[in-house]
Write a protein that binds this DNA or RNA. Sequence first.
RNA 1: GUGGAUGUAGCUCAGUUGGCAGAGCAUCGGGUUGUGGUCUCGAGGGUCGCGGGUUCAAAUCCCGUCAUCCACCCCA
Length: 431
Amino acid sequence: MAFQGVKGTRDFYPDVMRLRNWISDAWRRVSLRNGFEEYDSPIFEYLDLFTAKSGQEIAEQLFSLTDRGGRNLAIRPEITPALARMVNARINALPRPIKWFSVPRLCRAENPQKGRLREFFQWNIDIIGSDDVLADAECVFVAVDFLREVGLSPTEVQVRIGSRPLTVAALRGCGVGDDAIDKALAVLDKRAKISDQEFLDAARKIGMDDAQVQAIMRFQDCAGVAELRRAVAGAEGAGEACDKLERLMACLQAMGAGDYCTLDLRVVRGLAYYTGVVYEVFDTGQDLRAIAGGGRYDNLLAVLGGPQVGATGFGMGDVVLGILLEERGKLPETLKAASLDVFVIDDRPELAELVFQTVGALRRAGRAADFSYKRQNVGKQLKEANKRGARQAVIIKSADLVALKDLATGEQAEMSMTEFQEKYCSLVPKP
RNA sequence: GUGGAUGUAGCUCAGUUGGCAGAGCAUCGGGUUGUGGUCUCGAGGGUCGCGGGUUCAAAUCCCGUCAUCCACCCCA
C-alpha cells in the first residue's frame, strides 16, 4: 500500500461513521434536553492559549505549527481554553448561567494505546457563571442522563465524586506543607491504580511520613459525608467543602441520578486547575480508563485574562466510550446495515422510465429512495433492495399498477399508481 | 522516550522439516425460466510489511528497518 493513515488516527468508513453519528447524536440529544446550547471553536489556536492554562510542559503533547506569518499555532488538544476565550470576549453580554456544549474533534501527540488515540472526539458540557453547587450537580446529571440513554446501567458504570478543596484541607490537616500539596495530589490521584505498598513508597518519596499517609488513606476511604466530617474536623475550609459535597449528593438523589453516583475521595484528577468538586466516570469492570472526567475550575477564565467567574464541566471522549459500548453490546443492531425507505423496481425493462419518475417523486417527498442501475429481472432487483437495507420495495407492474412489498415480512399489496403517489409521494410532514 | 507481542487477499486467519500462495467471510458475475433474504456454480483479488543476507530453493532461517497493537511515562 502506497499510503497509510497517520499513527493514532482512524478512517471512518460508512459502517463506522454510522456508529460515530449514533454516539454524537445521543450527545447532542441529551445536551439539548438538559438546556445546553451548542458552540464550536476553530480547530487551531495560538499556542499560548493552551500553554497559558496548563503550562509549558504540555507543549510536548501538542501538534503545533508555525504559519507563514511566523505565528505559533497549535491544533486544539481540548476545547475548554477556547470556550473560556469565547466567553471572556462576551462575558458582559451573555446571560448567565451560560450552559454550553460542544463535540469537538481534538488532537494530542500522545502514544496511542487502548482507549487513547491521537485524534478523537470529545463531548464537552460546561456551565459558566455560577458558583452554586447546583451547577456541578447539573453537569453530573447530564453525564448520567447520557449513560442511561445509551443503555448503561448503574451496575455497569459509576460516577465517582471527590472534592479538591476537601482533599487539600485533609492534607493540610495532617501536616502536609503548602509546597508539597500539588505533588501530594498527584500521588493521591494514582492511588486507585497502584497497590498500597506502591502508594506508601510514592508518598514517602515526596516527604510524607507514615502517620500522614495513614491519615490521608483513612480520609480517602470515607464512605459518606458524615464520616468525612469527622475525618477532617477542624481543618480549614473543610466544613464548607463538606456542605457542598452533601448538597451535591442530595441534588443528584433528588434528580434521580443517585444510583449512578458514589462518593469517592480517591478521585483527585490530574491537572492543577480544578478548584472544587471533581469526578470521573468509570466502568465497574475497571478494565478501561475513565470514560469521562470533570469538575469545577473557577480560576480558568481569570487565568486567561477574564474576570473571576465560576465554571464547571466535564469531557467525555468517544474512544473509551466506543470500546465500552461495544464490549457491553449496547450498540443497536440497526446500526450494522445501511437503511433506505424504499427501493423501486421495474417488472419489465420497458418500465424503466416510470422507475426514474417514481424515485424522483419519492425523494422530492422526503423519502430515502433508490433503484438499480441495471435493468434485470425482479428477483435480482429484490436481492439488491435487500442488500441495500431497504424497508420496502415498490414493484412497478405497469403505468397504472404497482405492488408495495414489505421486505421484512414479505407481505405485498397491489394498488394503482395514483393511489401510491397520493400515499407515498406527497410531502412527508416535518416533525 | 522505554519494554513486550504481532505483521500472509478488503476482513478473520491457516500455511508441517525451507520445496508451485490457501480457506472462510466480503466483492463481482452466472444459475435455480424471472418476487429477495438462508441455496448453488464461478471469477477477480497477495512485492507473504519493507530492505539485505544464507541457500539449488525463503512466507518459513539470520540481520536490519518500518508499521500496528499492548503496557510503562503522561493523561487537559
